[in-house]
Structures are given as structure tokens and as C-alpha cells.
Write a protein that binds this DNA or RNA. Structure first.
Lengths: 216, 216
DNA sequence: TAGATTGTTAATCGATTAACAATC
DNA sequence: TAGATTGTTAATCGATTAACAATC
């Protein structure tokens, strides 16, 4: 039963489903139909059913979906039923903010180490975790079952650090540096290009201004 | 000459083109063909030509594209030829990190105010900008020609603050809160859902694990 | 059973890629 | 001029939406 490859578009939507289902569950909602959920989320009911059916049928004809069950199943699909161990590389502003931020109110993502090349930061504690010298990174990853590296180093350092991470056998990189990393396919990368995001907003703003002048 | 609506997919790619062209320019490259750029960026040359042609032809047959010119044109399209005035709402870890971060090494995005509801933070200076009480926000926006509000408040407060921002006539919201904002169409929103991003990475990791067990 | 709603197939829409005539 | 490469049209591919038979 080889899984057919799930498209990027579907994957991108999963966390949003998860978020809405979590809220419904917290509100004590027991069941929901694709129709109701579609109204709530502003998507088509067809799309919801198609998306869920990529992973097998979670609903029941005439009833809809059980919120608690669907929530748990999506959590499993997303790998949120287990704990991930993270390290943060780069203890600058962003690295420190993420250290304080990453758990997102839920268990599941645990920052266990923070690394930097700046000796002035060594030993500094951020949320109880001390900053270590970069040289200790490789050993730390091997000995502490680290899954994910959060890359918050300057652009210029990012490619080099990514290479080190690949060499030490990291599984995934959450990349905040403004470069596209070139890593082997087995290392998963998720980019957060903040400047790209802000630039998209600038585009929308600019477009809007242009349209209004044009009298649209 | 009514502009046809540009698709989300194209818009999403523009900042990446801009980034690559900036690097080429900095490296002193004068001209580039869609073919060369396609190899560099790992996309098809067809797509590059199609994308650029949504905004008019920037190239020349037999020659390719002039890097400096194309870079400047894309900057204009993206609204990067003018200065944006930002305020940050929510002076927590993330808000402070972004205050230190937002200029991205380029002029164009200027943080002029930071607001919070926590009196303990009032007057604290972040990158030379003092934190002000939330009550002053409306007047500040009106008097200081503010374009963009960066929303780094907790989820629970986000919808309320977004409402205030709409009322005071903000043009755009860069939303870091984990909720979908419901604002009028003329207010542009760009979401940065960090937890969604991390969850997608978790999915990829989980999928990878499952495939390997399955012997793929 | 009748009504509701899924799972799934078929139709549509849009985005990407290929091809090539226009032209520098 | 000949060669190169764009701008643009046509073909393909994939994702979204619509429709409906299956079934709870």
C-alpha cells in the first residue's frame, strides 16, 4: 500500500485544519460536517473531503466527522503525537525569541540546546537553557537525540552551518536565514523567510495604491 | 489598461527573484538569460519568462535581461522604491526581536513606534524606540503616516487589536498571531504562522520516518 | 425507512511547461 | 547576417470544484 505522494498544497493546509479542530474540541464540539467546517474556514466542503481522504476516510456518511477523533488522527499525520527535540543555532534576538516561543503552548517541541559562536554569550541562560559554543554542537546532537535544528544565524554563516548539520546527521532544519539551503533530500527543510513575507505585504500595499489611483 | 489580477503563486515567487537578482547585481553580473537564471534558482526558464511578462517585458531578444534594470523594476513592482512606516504592537520577545530585525539590512522598512498594554514596559527603549501605551496607538498612527502594523500580541488579544487597527485606518497588517484575522478587503494581511511552519516540518519528518520503515 | 453526508469519480479551472515565431 | 533568446501561444499537467452513488 504505497502512499501516493501528497501535494504541497494539501500539506500546507493541514496545520490550519489542525488549528480549527483544536478550537472546536476546546469548545466542546463533538461532531462537524465538511459543510459546517467549510463555512468556518472559508474553503469548499469538497476540498475538505478531498484533503482528508488523502489519508483515509475519517468520517461517516450521514454523520460527518467526530471532532476529537479527527483531531487526534491529524495530530498523528503531522507527527504531533511524539516529542521533538530541537536545538537553536544562533542566540541573537530571533534565536532567543524563538527559544521562549517554540513550545507554542503545547508539549511536543522541546528546545534542549542553544549554540552560538560568540564567547560573550556562552553560559547565558535563556529559558533555563545555557548557550553553548558551536564546537560542542556535533557531539550534543549525537548524544541528545536531536531531531530539528533551528537556524537563526546570519545569512553569511547559514550555508556553512547547514553543512555541519548535515554532516552530523540532523533530520530537519527550520531555516530562518535568507538563503536557500542546498542539502541532501533526506534532510527536510522548512524555510521562514521573514523578509520575503514582509516584501509580499509591501507588494499588496503597492498594488492597492496603484489600483486606487487608476480609479478601480 | 486594467491590470489582470496576478495570481498568488506569482506574487509568492517575486521576493525570491528579487533576492537572487540582488545577489547577481552585488556580484557585478551585468546580464542574465532566463536559462541561466533558471539553473541558478531551480525553476524552469518558461516560468521565469511567464512571471516577468505579467508585468511587461523587461528583456531583449538575443540578449536576455539586464540585471540592474530588472532588479530595479522588480523593486518598483514590490513597492520597495519607497519607505514604509511600521509600528509593532506587542513588545514581547518576538516583537522586540522583530524591532531589531525588520530593516533587513536595507532601507525601506522603518519601525517608528512600539506599543504594549503592559505598563512595566512603557518607556523601555528597543533600538532607540520607546514602548508606548496601547492607548496612544490610534493617535500615533494618524499623526505619523504609519503604513503597516506588525501584530505580535497573544492570540487572545489579536482579533481585538486588529479591529482597532482597522478602525484607525491602517493599510496593512503583518500578523504573527495564530489566528486568521477577519478584516475588510482594503486592509492587506500577510500571515506568519510560525507554529504552522514548524508543524509542516514535523509532518515531513514524520512522513520520512514512515517511508523508511516501509522500506521505500 | 428517510435524510444526511461522506467518499469518490467526473468536470472544470488554473498554473506550469513546451514550442516557436518575432526580433534584437 | 546568423545566433541567441525573448515574448507569447498552445499543450499539458495538476489542483479544485461539482456531482452523485454509496452508506450510515
Amino acid at each position: 500500500m504505497a502512499d501516493k505522494e501528497i501535494s504541497q498544497a494539501v500539506i500546507a493546509r493541514l496545520p490550519r485544519y489542525f488549528r480549527y479542530l483544536g478550537e472546536l474540541r476546546d469548545d466542546g464540539v463533538e461532531r462537524i460536517s465538511s459543510r459546517e467546517l467549510s463555512r468556518l474556514m472559508n474553503v469548499t466542503a469538497s476540498q475538505i473531503r478531498q484533503d482528508f481522504n488523502h489519508f483515509g476516510g475519517f468520517g461517516q456518511q450521514g454523520y460527518g466527522y467526530n471532532v476529537e477523533y479527527l483531531y487526534a488522527e491529524i495530530a498523528k499525520i503531522l507527527g504531533l503525537d511524539r516529542t521533538h527535540h530541537l536545538i537553536i543555532i544562533g542566540a541573537g534576538n530571533l534565536g532567543q525569541a524563538l527559544a521562549n516561543y517554540v513550545d507554542f503552548g503545547r508539549k511536543g517541541f522541546l528546545v534542549t540546546g542553544i549554540f552560538d559562536v560568540n564567547p560573550a554569550l556562552y553560559g547565558k541562560k535563556i529559558r533555563g537553557i545555557e548557550v553553548r559554543p558551536m564546537e560542542e554542537m556535533a557531539r550534543f546532537v549525537r548524544e541528545n537525540n536531536v531531531d530539528i535544528a533551528v537556524l537563526t544565524v546570519p545569512k553569511s554563516a547559514a550555508v556553512g552551518v547547514a553543512g555541519q548539520l548535515v554532516k552530523v546527521g540532523i533530520s530537519a532544519i527550520w531555516n530562518f536565514a535568507h538563503v536557500d539551503l542546498d542539502v541532501p533530500g533526506e534532510v527536510k527543510v522548512e524555510n521562514v523567510h521573514l523578509s520575503d513575507s514582509l516584501i509580499r505585504l509591501s507588494y499588496l500595499l503597492n498594488r492597492k495604491g496603484a489600483q486606487e489611483e487608476g480609479g478601480v
